[in-house]
Design a protein around this nucleic acid. Structure first.
Lengths: 229, 229
DNA sequence: ACACAATATTGATAAATATCAATATTTATT
DNA sequence: AATAAATATTGATATTTATCAATATTGTGT
């Protein structure tokens, strides 16, 4: 009798996810064929480099961001398993318009763009599911632009916390692995401002902070702050 | 013998465009069936409202933006014929995450979401072309986020001018219909700052201004300013 | 052509946020 | 466990951009 390692468990879930997208057993084999590990902090892709692969996050968490010449990043998305990264590069100018970095040790399946494209062209159900992902990505970006460009720091930080809690970690606890700098990049602010704003939220009893872990105590209040603009 | 009106000409071009996307004659008839006119300044869709339609811009120009509660807008895209608007609403939460307004008198074809979806599901070539549009939209948004969130006013305004010139009007002349406020919303800045920044660019001989029309004299210089960050 | 509304322009000031500097705390490495 | 490196925190200051106010210009409708 054999026991399942956490990795087996993860494999099973990934296959389940891909099945739901409409992929056949052989297609699943194709897209999960090449697997790469990334250490925390490692670059998964570099902005401006040639985009050969579509990536499927199997394990861990990534952050995707645009960077300017002074190496200031703006994070527009945190990615959890099982997400597909790089759909924006499937067509167009063939270069990554964003960078992506592992914020925890992660495993990623690489799928050659042409292979991915072939599946889309021949598998209607999959194409349709991919279009859903595009829709969601666009909606997420509109929300982020709204936050980053129209709001003040308090609202921005609230938006980031709400996003992390509801969309990414699905918990009122934002884990210790998310640094103040991550939140700063996600909010489009300087790290020092995050510290100050978190202190403010703490004294309003909206959150509690223990070491670096943030617990959301009053989601309604965060949402009211977020709306204030 | 009959002569063609400008409208006939436009109809022909629209049909040509849709043919290139892989639509059959009957599909083209379906998607061009309902046509609506918008006056300058009129809302094409309202952020937050229920998204029933996918729209095809047949004539004119639109601006798409996210708005906050204080009615401050951030424009993320200017749309020219023949573009499709609302792809982000094809799936997801069924509400517009952005608003859209005519910046010149415009004509728009409305296609019911379910109808559009049916065509995508049955027409592979069309689905593939739509995915290209999604890719481009995402790339455009990454670029805009980079500009709006990482740069100072001079670079932001240069980015907006480059965008308008290269992507939208395909000319070094940005027409009189684009207001200072449009440029402000596109750059994520206040109108007064646009005026000041344009004066700066004028005195650097990067642009010339006549009434409200802006002519780009030195695109290379604009691009250097843009990179400076 | 006139009056009214909208848009653009300019200058002065206020507000928000970034930056800098110094220190404390946490994490990683040997 | 000791040390080094990275991250977080706090306060002071500088910079940028928004806001306000006042005027000029342009556009629109009668």
């Amino acid at each position: 009798m054999r026991t399942f390692s956490p990795d087996d468990e993860n494999n099973k879930k990934l296959v389940e996810f891909l099945k739901k997208l409409g992929l056949s057993a052989s297609e699943i084999k194709t897209v999960t064929n090449t697997e790469i590990e990334f250490k925390k902090g490692e670059n998964v892709c570099k902005q401006g480099s040639f985009a050969s692969y579509i990536m499927i996050l199997k394990e861990g968490w990534l952050k995707s961001f645009v960077e300017n010449i002074h190496f200031k990043n703006t994070v527009f998305k945190i990615t959890k398993p099982f997400s597909i990264i790089g759909l924006s590069c499937l067509y167009g100018d063939n270069h990554y318009h964003f960078g992506c970095q592992a914020i925890m040790p992660s495993k990623v399946c690489l799928v050659e763009r042409t292979v991915f494209d072939d599946i889309i062209r021949t598998n209607n159900k999959f194409a349709s599911e991919i279009i859903k992902m595009y829709s969601n990505s666009l909606q997420n970006l509109y929300d982020r632009i709204n936050s980053i460009s129209n709001k003040q720091s308090l609202s921005k930080v609230c938006d980031s916390l709400i996003y992390l809690s509801e969309k990414i970690f699905e918990s009122n606890v934002i884990p210790i692995n998310i640094t103040r700098r991550d939140i700063a990049e996600l909010s489009g602010l300087a790290t020092e401002n995050i510290v100050r704003t978190l202190a403010e939220l703490k004294s309003a009893n909206a959150i509690s902070v223990n070491k670096k872990e943030i617990t959301i105590l009053d989601m309604d209040l965060l949402k009211r702050f977020s709306c204030f603009g």
